[in-house]
Design a protein around this nucleic acid. Structure first.
Length: 156
DNA sequence: GCCAACGTTGGC
DNA sequence: GCCAACGTTGGC
């Protein structure tokens, strides 16, 4: 089966690539957008690769590579009143939100900043770069995925 | 901290 | 089902 590629955004103040590296594996909880959730539930498979993207960072950009290690299951933070991702309408029977499990693969040799992604004509169709795009989970073509990794090896 | 661009909510 | 008001995201 063909592997798919993704970009997973995360606010760097919440969880960074270094914490991901230390943990090795984590549940990608807190996704509260249906489009992003549906990508996880319908299209993500164990073995897919994704960029770990730092948002709200200085600079924002692709920081590392992670692998989907388990397919979508209920996101229990929606059921936990103490969690900032708690949601009243979520129940055990209908958890509403789901998460995948991801594992750390590697950090990029250097963070590839958003500004460089924008400058690269080969990446002009990248969903992440489209005007007003706020989706925290977006698919990426294999070509774009490889292009970003190539950029991470450039000396700048 | 600002604010553009979205997504969501809720009155009608 | 429309759409105004509000909330959120996230780059700058």
């Amino acid at each position: 089966m063909k592997r798919r590629y993704w970009i997973l955004k995360n606010e760097v103040t919440d969880y960074s690539i270094d914490e991901m590296k230390k943990d090795g594996q984590t549940d990608w909880t807190g996704v509260r957008n249906y489009q992003a959730r549906n990508f996880m539930m319908k299209d993500m498979k164990a073995g897919d690769w994704a960029y770990f993207y730092h948002s709200n960072a200085e600079p924002p950009g692709c920081a590392g590579i992670i692998e989907i290690s388990r397919e979508a299951k209920p996101d229990l933070t929606a059921l936990d009143p103490k969690s900032k991702y708690f949601e009243k309408r979520a129940t055990k029977e209908n958890p509403v939100w789901h998460c995948v499990q991801v594992k750390f693969k590697r950090k990029l040799k250097r963070l590839v900043p958003l500004s460089e992604l924008r400058e690269n004509p080969k990446l002009k169709d990248l969903l992440l770069l489209q005007r007003g795009s706020r989706l925290s989970i977006t698919p990426v073509s294999q070509e774009a995925f490889e292009e970003i990794e190539r950029m991470s090896k450039e000396i700048r």
